[in-house]
């Protein structure tokens, strides 16, 4: 359970950074603060320094393209912060455009952000400005594109060595679409 003695983060951040907090999203009883990407680093510094959020629990990407009810920039980076002193949690989000997605790196504030950000770059192509070593973490360097983006063909493979007998799933999917026009629009 989360103690609720201190004022809501929303108010604290709004009071200090003004319009940096664009919105608040509620999910599962928790509130995510949507920040202006350019204000993220300042807000995180404040959270870490003044408010004692000393742990970056998680940092991950998401692509909301085509997500029901979502408007605005589709690419999302989501941050989970935790304070070991007050046991409070903070959930921050920034939304970025697909082209030129760029947000400040948190590596200077949290060392563990290094690999999280590399993974997010690998999978979603988010450019973390100021990251000391922003290259692919999981996939190979020859890989083109960012596979967890919605515009990456879901079954597209990029083998490093010749593959025989491999099923061309894209061709199968094309054939299936051409057979039944009803399914053509479905993802």
């Amino acid at each position: 359970m989360q103690p609720n003695s201190s004022p809501p983060l929303h108010d604290e951040l709004t009071a200090r950074f003004g319009d940096a907090v664009l919105a608040a999203e509620s999910l599962g009883g928790r509130e995510a603060l949507v920040l202006r990407p350019s204000a993220l680093l300042e807000a995180v510094r404040h959270l870490r320094g003044a408010l004692g959020f000393d742990v970056l629990i998680d940092l991950c990407g998401a692509d909301y393209s085509g997500y029901p009810g979502h408007q605005g920039d589709p690419l999302c980076v989501s941050y989970q912060l935790f304070s070991t002193a007050t046991r409070r949690r903070a959930w921050l989000k920034v939304y970025l455009p697909l082209e030129g997605a760029r947000v400040d790196s948190l590596c200077g504030e949290y060392g563990c952000a290094n690999w999280y950000e590399r993974e997010t770059f690998d999978m979603y192509g988010v450019d973390f400005a100021g990251h000391p070593n922003l290259k692919r973490l999981l996939l190979y360097e020859e890989f083109k594109g960012h596979p967890l983006r919605k515009d990456y063909p879901i079954q597209k493979m990029q083998p490093l060595i010749p593959m025989r007998n491999a099923v061309d799933y894209e061709a199968v999917a094309r054939a299936r679409r051409s057979q039944s026009p009803d399914e053509a629009g479905g993802r």
Binding site: Y152, I154, Q155, M157, Q158, P162, M163, N165, A166
Partner: peptide, 13 residues
Amino acid sequence: YQNYGSVPGIDCF
């Protein structure tokens, strides 16, 4: 697994 990452069977190579 049928995605960007996995080989669809080692008999591919």
